[in-house]
């Protein structure tokens, strides 16, 4: 009981002498905040060596983060924001390249390789089986 009272006392003291820190950017909903996080993580800072908007401290990254924040709060969709950035800074700002005929190999190449790999695997196994059967005869 005493400890409980102490706890309450501590909490009260804390509340009276400390302010809770606020987020640098405030969002109207948690969803918006999550969308913001994922957008600034996937957009590349156009001026930096190789950094996304979230990690970069450069002036343009700060401005573009603010722009993304504002557009989200204005009710723009993720695609609209991406299109907005691409129209101004080019495809270069997307760390997730858009699907197109030119990026077909990029996106599906690994899976084509995987298919080729499995074909090789199966053919090696089959050839081995044939050879073993041959050896037995």
């Amino acid at each position: 009981m005493i400890s409980f009272r102490l706890l309450v006392l501590c909490l009260l003291l804390n509340l009276s002498s400390f302010a809770w820190a606020e987020e640098v950017m405030s969002f109207s909903s948690d969803l918006n905040q999550i969308r913001y996080q994922s957008l600034v993580n996937e957009l590349r800072c156009p001026k930096c060596q190789n950094q996304n908007l979230a990690d970069s401290g450069s002036g343009i990254a700060v401005d573009l983060r603010e722009q993304v924040h504002q557009m989200i709060e204005d009710g723009k969709s993720d695609q609209e924001i991406v299109d907005y950035m691409v129209a101004r800074y080019g495809e270069f700002v997307l760390y997730r390249p858009q699907h197109s005929s030119a990026t077909f190999l990029l996106w599906y190449g690994p899976f084509i390789l995987l298919a080729i790999g499995f074909t090789i695997f199966v053919s090696v196994i089959v050839r081995n089986r044939k050879r073993r059967n041959g050896a037995r005869l």
């Binding site: 156009p46 001026k47 002036g59 343009i60 401005d63 573009l64 722009q67 101004r88 800074y89 080019g90």
Partner: peptide, 12 residues
């Protein structure tokens, strides 16, 4: 505010 800069794709 640098808004026109963003519209022009300026980075600095």
């Amino acid at each position: 505010m640098g808004r026109f800069g963003i519209d022009m794709g300026v980075t600095g």
